[in-house]
Design a protein around this nucleic acid. Structure first.
Length: 628
DNA sequence: AGCACGCCGACT
DNA sequence: GTCGGCGTGCTC
């Protein structure tokens, strides 16, 4: 008898001999087996009578056989994670908290599956997989729906996972869920300490907790019964992992729901184009709380487009209209938030030749810090005192260019004669739990603004509107719509959002201004269809990292790509990109695109195997990438 | 994960 | 010229 064992390392299953006296239900059990001369804990994923690798003579024997960790559905889910995200099975196993489970199951002699079996009760609600999408008028509405559904069905719920995109959002739902489920609730997120995480996994495995609230990784918890899954703010890019197992927790939630035959509730103030498409094709069902009427546009904050071309003096970043509104709000003691996406004061440009000072290493603009009289690279951290002359034309006519937080702060304080605070510097909404002075004017990046929760402003001015929708990403319009819609959540209902732009006629801005989701999705889906982008096709991105000899490998890579069957498949690249990893100097990128997921995955797997043969190269595969 | 092998910087 | 850094490879 042989068994395939997966270890929680970057490794595919390995074959071992099974002792004669072993129990017969081996699949899903934790075992100890020799690996590199040492005993390691792994998981049996399959058992058979004959070894598939007969040629290998020294197949080793399993040393210990322990309790079950994985049910049939957990194994399917793990297999899906590994196959779909082109990752070794071991990485998938590690990701689903196997090491923590070993610690508990082996040390405390408990079985993951058996201990939870007692809670299993089949209700009507269960065992009928269906995914729903709720397009909510506000984040609060998302929570109301969740509250309503859970309150109505909680006696029937045995095992639930509720996902939020950011750690800071856990507290928004914690009390509500605690009220319904009491001690059954537990919390999982990446910022837990090792011990706390172990303790939480123990509660889950022993069946003390079966309601899990958390970020991304919560969808992977080793719970054998799931009857309900919720994904709040489903459009959020935070659900996509950027390292290790690069899974999208929203997609994993839908797949896990399908495997476990449980209901999946996706909700968002501005759902992803993919999810809207899935409603159109019938994969998801649209839903809304019965008693909440769709919110009228008149009841939402006003969105106003401010034409930058008409702004007052050329040296000012803030337009005259916004200044006027700010003055008005200041006089009433209201609160105003200014959002700009650069920290520091500005960039540096030569007025003679137009050259913008850049970091020699990273090729991105250097940021000027006025008070310290230095320029700094925000990527590598390089700092130097500011040059007197232009590197390019040696001219002395160098000037600040564009605007960062410091410049906006300077302009506001200068014009309005008012004190302002900087988010992230004077005030860290995600760390300190204190209120901003009610009369305050605040300045921050959209990153820091996103962390604000309960604050409500009378007005927000956004200066990076154009940067949002001009990015070279087919999802730029979608992202713009989402980012701006999310901002309206921190405005009072009668508040105003000012979008400063050089392109006031852009149709994306017209959609946003009118909260015209319907036309926006129609337009966006049409564009995606014409250009053959997701959701009409699937994409896998390959990054090839190298320390040196990039040109030499280029030939090998071309050769590999030539040998790939391109039937129903499109391959773009390889193209040189700035290496996103600091330990590698070079990075080549390959785009693989297909309408057929099966074709895409089978060829991607082949490509990956071939690319891994290139010596000295590190390969990353990113399935359904969000950052293009 | 952990252990072995391998190629570039400061030392007797 | 060698010692040793850790970056990459392999494990049934």
């Amino acid at each position: 008898m042989y068994a395939d064992v997966v270890f929680p390392f970057k490794l595919s299953p390995l074959t071992y001999k099974v002792p004669e006296d072993a129990p017969d239900n081996l699949k899903g059990r934790i075992v100890k087996a020799p690996l590199m001369g040492k005993g390691h804990y792994g998981l049996i994923v399959s058992a058979r009578n004959e070894s598939l690798l007969e040629k290998k003579k020294n197949i080793k024997m399993i040393q210990e056989i322990h309790h079950h960790f994985a049910s049939e559905s957990t194994l399917s889910f793990m297999k899906w994670l590994s196959d779909y995200y082109l990752s070794p099975m071991g990485i998938a196993l590690k990701s689903i908290f196997f090491e923590e489970a070993v610690n508990i199951c082996v040390k405390h002699d408990v079985s993951c599956i058996e201990s939870q079996r007692g809670t299993k009760k089949v209700a009507n609600f269960q065992h009928s997989y269906k995914s729903f999408l709720y397009h909510a008028p506000s984040i609060s509405h998302e929570y109301y729906l969740l509250d309503e559904v859970l309150n109505r069905t909680y006696p029937d719920i045995h095992g639930a996972v509720i996902l939020v995109p950011e750690v800071s959002q856990i507290e928004n739902l914690h009390d509500m869920l605690k009220n319904i489920f009491g001690e059954r609730l537990c919390v999982i997120h990446s910022k837990l300490t090792k011990n706390k995480r172990l303790e939480t996994i123990k509660q889950i495995i022993t069946g003390q907790s079966d309601i899990i609230l958390g970020t991304r990784s919560a969808i992977l918890v080793p719970i054998s019964n799931i009857s309900f899954i919720a994904v709040t703010s489903e459009h959020s890019t935070s659900y996509k992992g950027e390292e290790g197992l690069r899974y999208n927790a929203r997609d994993a939630a839908v797949m896990r729901g399908f495997i476990e035959k449980s209901h999946v509730f996706l909700s968002s103030v501005c759902p992803s184009v993919e999810s809207i498409y899935n409603v159109k094709t019938g994969k998801y069902s649209p839903t809304a709380p019965s008693h909440i009427a769709p919110q009228k546009v008149e009841n939402r904050p006003k969105i106003k487009i401010i034409d930058s071309r008409l702004k007052g003096q050329k040296t000012m970043t803030i337009s005259r209209d916004v200044i006027k509104q700010a003055r008005d709000i200041a006089s009433k003691g209201g609160r105003f938030l200014f959002i700009i996406n650069t920290r520091g004061y500005s960039l540096i440009r030569c007025e003679d030749c137009g050259h913008i000072a850049q970091c020699n290493k990273c090729n991105i603009p250097l940021v000027f810090y006025k008070n310290r009289n230095i320029v700094k690279c925000h990527y590598c951290g390089f700092e130097q005192t500011i040059h007197e002359s232009c590197e390019e034309c040696k001219g002395f006519n160098i000037k600040p260019f564009g605007a960062g937080i410091e410049k906006i702060k300077e302009e506001i304080e200068d014009v309005l004669k008012i004190k302002t605070i900087t988010l992230g510097k004077d005030y860290m909404p995600w760390v300190i739990d204190k209120d901003i002075d009610a009369a305050s004017f605040a300045i921050g990046t959209s990153y820091t603004a996103k962390k604000l929760r309960d604050e409500k402003f009378d007005a927000i001015a956004l200066f990076n509107t154009d940067w949002l929708f001009t990015r070279p990403d087919f999802r730029a319009y979608e992202r713009t719509f989402q980012e701006i819609t999310m901002l309206t959540n921190i405005l009072k209902p009668d508040g105003s959002l000012y979008l400063q732009t050089w392109y006031p006629k852009k149709r994306i801005l017209r959609f946003i201004k009118n909260y015209d989701f319907k036309t926006f999705y129609e337009y966006e889906l049409l564009q995606r269809k014409i250009l053959d982008y997701p959701p009409f096709s699937r994409i896998i991105l390959f990054n090839i990292f190298m320390k040196k000899n990039a040109e030499r490998s280029l030939h090998d890579i071309d050769e590999i790509i030539n040998n790939i069957d391109k039937q129903g498949l499109e391959i773009l690249g390889p193209v040189d990109i700035a290496s996103p990893l600091k330990s590698y100097k070079y990075c080549l990128q390959i785009f693989m695109k297909s309408k057929d997921r099966k074709i895409l995955h089978s060829q991607a797997e082949r490509l990956l195997i071939e690319l891994k043969k290139i010596k000295g190269a590190k390969i990353n595969a990113d399935v359904d990438p969000l950052k293009i």
